[in-house]
Amino acid sequence: MARILIIDDDEDIIETVGSLLKFEGFEVEFATTTEKGLEMIKDSIPDLVLLDIMFPDKKTKGFDASSEIKGLFSDLPLFVFTAINREYAFDFSKDDIKADEFINKPVKLDRLVEMIKQYI
């Protein structure tokens, strides 16, 4: 069973996306901080990471974390996942973001599963 790690400070998002992914048969883990998420990845590499961008302590913390994760595990599929529907709102272009996909919240489950299956 494919294992997906959700890193998001919004517990409702973790609950909804997590439940929907579990419903589709994935094993889901979660972390509410990037530090905790990185620790979990180092302990046991998941099959895919869903990473939020805006965290309470820093507006673009997810981008820093995505660079760090991709720096350590370049083959690990990573989707950035944010409520701001345009990456440029963070002064980043798509080329600067170290991620395999850029997903806007909310995403319909079918679409998310379709995207995940392309990487797992």
Binding site: D12, I13, V17, L20
Partner: peptide
Amino acid sequence: RGPLAAISGFHEM
């Protein structure tokens, strides 16, 4: 948008 995304997720659940 954040809370709305959660609401949308709950609807789908």
